[in-house]
């Protein structure tokens, strides 16, 4: 048996072009009109998915699952686009995907769902996701899922993965100060929290869409509810920053004068 069993964890987030306003819900903060805000697939998780699809394509015998916890209707909406780009098998859980949900609860539900995947060979597992979500932005869930599944070769901020002739994985991660750390990992099981990677978003391919929909719709229909508890977490308040700057708009100032002003400001 050869090939990787690649699992990508990722869910929906509000479209970043849309303003967000927190309101108080029964379990703490929520987003105003959360259910009707337009959603996108979480951007770094999307990069993970494209990279994962590339890996699966380039190594025969590999398979790809997307494991997602989110409100069913939102997942369905986002799968309409994601499902046209990458051949995948969806494992969906119907539950909250917002930023205020506890990472530990999300991780546990994801790990359980992954462990229950029929036919998944954990010795060949390449577990992927975004290195942080665009919602909670904690960079926590994936590491915890990895711990649940006993994966101790974990990488975060991954921008590059290359399979070596001997089967080792060469991983390029982001380090502080705009630097990269390069590592060689003996092979799976391995966890990769992706940053932007190197691959452009694949174009929509209606054939892939057709192929996926046969599995995606049933997966959404049978999505189990995921109850994600807050377990000792209490929010005291949540607010969008109010501060709006009084922008001084400088028109018709000669270039030399602008330059002098900027230089004085830099030096000041």
């Amino acid at each position: 048996m050869s090939g990787y069993h690649v699992v990508v964890c990722g869910s929906v987030v509000p479209d970043p072009l849309h303003p967000l306003e927190p309101v108080t819900g029964p379990n703490g903060p929520e987003l105003k009109n959360e259910m009707i805000l337009p959603a996108v697939f979480d951007p770094w998780a999307a990069h993970a998915l494209y990279e994962a699809a590339h890996l699966v394509q380039s190594v025969p015998g590999s398979r790809l699952w997307l494991v997602s916890i989110g409100p069913r209707a939102k997942l369905q909406q986002v799968m309409m686009t994601i499902g046209q780009k990458v051949v995948l098998q969806l494992v969906a859980l119907d539950g909250p995907a917002g930023g205020f949900v506890d990472a530990a609860a999300t991780a546990e539900a994801l790990a359980d769902a992954i462990a229950a995947i029929d036919g998944l060979d954990r010795a060949r597992l390449v577990l992927c996701g975004g290195w942080a979500s665009a919602s909670r932005g904690a960079g926590a869930v994936l590491q915890m899922v990895g711990e649940h599944l006993g994966i101790v070769d974990q990488f975060q901020g991954v921008d590059e993965l290359a399979v070596q002739p001997d089967g080792a994985l060469r991983v390029v991660e982001r380090a502080d100060g705009g630097l990269n750390q390069v590592s060689l990992c003996a092979g799976p099981p391995v966890l990769l929290g992706w940053a932007t990677g190197n691959r452009p978003e694949p174009p929509n391919n209606p054939q892939i869409g057709m192929q996926n929909m046969r599995g995606v719709m049933p997966a959404l229909q049978k999505a189990r509810p995921a109850q994600l508890g807050m377990d000792g977490l209490r929010y005291c308040c949540a607010q969008a920053p109010r501060r709006r700057r009084e922008t001084r708009i400088v028109k018709d100032m000669p270039v030399d004068e602008i330059a002098r002003e900027i230089v004085a400001w830099i030096r000041g």
């Binding site: 990472a103 530990a104 960079g139 926590a140 869930v141 590491q143 915890m144 711990e147 974990q154 982001r174």
Partner: peptide, 22 residues
């Protein structure tokens, strides 16, 4: 920092604790 951020949540899981980053 990147080094700590790579393992802190996994550590929290191992200790059966909770984590908040940044």
């Amino acid at each position: 920092v990147s080094r700590v951020s790579r393992f802190i949540a996994g550590l929290a899981q191992r200790l059966n604790g909770r984590v908040d980053t940044q």
